[in-house]
């Protein structure tokens, strides 16, 4: 399995934000996207996850290969931790959720309503969903927001286990994850140049 992205242009609200982006991620590899706020990392990840069509270019894999985690975790506060995760395991038809609960140290919290979790614990539950999705490509948008240092290490461990099992990961993050083997890609040079507005009407003269 290999994710090849070639000459990709993505748009937000009909305006191109990134242009001519090409990269490939091999099996067992992670790619970390960098770039200032508003540079289009989220738009790029949403496009790759299949939530919006690209403006131009191709994404080598079907959207069925991607598991996406965005800024919000999609957690229902009145359901327990176990019910939340079991729902996604049922949707993705993968079955057991206990390994995912253990990987993110949520086993002790499994019968608590998810509404009572702290922000970091919710985030861990959101990331545990990636494990139960059973999909080969993880597309993660700022996965470490509100995680403490120990949890970041836990997350890095989960990503490593995923890569070791032949998975791929594409992340956008600002902090150092301790994934020393991951490659970096700065998206700033690919920023789309806004077309010059030419509304000068020659006939006017």
């Amino acid at each position: 399995m290999e994710l090849n992205v070639s000459d990709l242009s993505v748009s937000r609200g009909g305006i191109a934000v990134l242009e001519g982006l090409s990269f490939s991620i091999l099996e067992g590899e992670a790619l970390v996207l960098r770039g200032p706020n508003g540079s289009g990392k989220t738009t790029l990840l949403r496009t790759i996850a299949g939530l919006q069509p690209p403006l131009r270019g191709t994404i080598g894999l079907e959207r069925e290969a991607m598991a996406y985690a965005g800024h919000s975790d999609g957690i229902k506060s009145v359901l327990t931790v176990r019910e939340n995760l079991q729902f996604w395991a049922d949707v993705f038809e993968t079955g057991a959720i206990d390994p995912a609960l253990q990987a993110f140290d949520l086993s002790a919290l499994e019968n608590r309503p998810a509404g009572g979790l702290s922000a970091g614990q919710k985030r861990r539950l959101g990331l545990a969903r990636m494990v139960v999705s059973g999909r080969p490509v993880w597309v993660l948008d700022e996965p470490t927001v509100s995680l403490d240092l120990a949890s970041v290490a836990m997350f890095a461990e989960a990503v490593r286990a995923h890569l070791a099992a032949g998975g791929l990961a594409l992340l956008a993050t600002h902090i150092d994850l301790g994934l020393s083997e991951a490659r970096m890609l700065d998206v700033t040079p690919f920023k789309a140049i806004p077309p010059e507005i030419d509304d000068f009407d020659g006939d006017f003269l």
């Binding site: 299949g50 939530l51 996406y68 985690a69 965005g70 800024h71 999609g74 229902k76 996604w88 993705f92």
Partner: peptide
């Protein structure tokens, strides 16, 4: 409600 907490995005990327 599913839109607000992000579940709708996640459902859209799910196999359904």
């Amino acid at each position: 409600l599913d839109w607000e907490d992000g579940s709708l995005d996640l459902l859209a990327t799910a196999p359904l």
